[in-house]
Design a binder for these strands. Sequence first.
DNA 1: GATTAATCCGAATAAATGCTCGGAAACACT
DNA 2: AGTGTTTCCGAGCATTTATTCGGATTAATC
Lengths: 209, 209
Amino acid sequence: MRGGEGERLELQAKKRPRQARAQATFDAIVQACARVLAEEGYAAVTTNRVAELAGVSIGSLYEYFPNKQAIVASALARAMREIVEEVGASLRVAVALEGQPRAGIDYWMRAMTAALEKRGALLRVALREVPFLWDIPEVRDLSDTLQHIAQEGRKKSARVVHFDDPEASTYLLMTMVWSAILQSVLYRPSHLSRERLTSTLVEMVLKLL
Amino acid sequence: MRGGEGERLELQAKKRPRQARAQATFDAIVQACARVLAEEGYAAVTTNRVAELAGVSIGSLYEYFPNKQAIVASALARAMREIVEEVGASLRVAVALEGQPRAGIDYWMRAMTAALEKRGALLRVALREVPFLWDIPEVRDLSDTLQHIAQEGRKKSARVVHFDDPEASTYLLMTMVWSAILQSVLYRPSHLSRERLTSTLVEMVLKLL
DNA sequence: GATTAATCCGAATAAATGCTCGGAAACACT
DNA sequence: AGTGTTTCCGAGCATTTATTCGGATTAATC
């Protein structure tokens, strides 16, 4: 019942399922946890609720996870890996559109938006309510991973950021774009449509390159 | 003991302290709560802990607050009001520096950074761990308030954002700057100094105006 | 078919903690 | 000093909920 400070939490899954049946319950648990998180919030994630929704017994949870946090961590780590994969793939497409910078940037912005939008509810809860979020390796590394992706794109592209400090400006550009998209997904500003924001964002990025 | 979904939480203080003695305990409670939040995290905020640190009895807490959440809400609302005030004040200074846009932007960026930095630990916990954060009016309105401040600055200044959609681009610019600063305060990227980031940020903003 | 290992079950346990309530103490006002 | 109001106290109640454990059930292996 501790929170998110001193204690070292065990966030790894306990044991690998060996039989197919076991793999199914393992997945059911992780998936059920993700659903409760997204639909009911972190406070609703009780071990009993997750077990119930997964259709397994409470005892089975502790067969594969050392504690509640490890279940949540598994669910969130999975989502992060998916996001990184989608964002990375979209960058490769964008770079392939070398000839038309606007089209490339546009595609990339929209892909990032889609990747976050698809998991909006989950991300909202994760970022706002999960106390040990930043103890999850996949989350902690996300920022750096995105930086790598951005650097990679810059190197392969003809366009370059031309400011005094290329590293700092690349970092900032990526951070700003990512934050703006995330913000609009999480906060859902009512007076400005997503479409309007995206196209304006593309303009701004082009101007900064 | 509920979390952050369906239930309507009472986040207002219960009753106003009438005597000076009472005002002192009221303040002590709010301040103690802020300290526990910033130094030990939300999970450490138990009614007993706050009472202890405030040097009052547990019973006294419930004299002025209907529940635990109201105490946390009071502490955070106070911080938000202070931030808005500081950011607003710094904008007025920046606008007064009309002649030198670079100096004005620079001053403003640094003031925002300072305002957030000063409350870094508190903000980190608030944004990452407090489940009902967005039910607090002062927090919910923060984004809009910042938008107003930005619009105000734009109107009073000679420089204008020149993109197809002035409203969207102003919104995005403010969001991006705010997010980037907040991000760097919360995340503390080790490989890039605060100074480096700030000056680059100033460059970028100038380029977008 | 017998034996071993993996998986699943769920009532019971144990601990944490938000909050109440009856009464004592301090204060304001006459 | 007397009276009513405000403030303060803190042991105890009530509830929630993470986790255990002994044993039943099913699958793999010989």
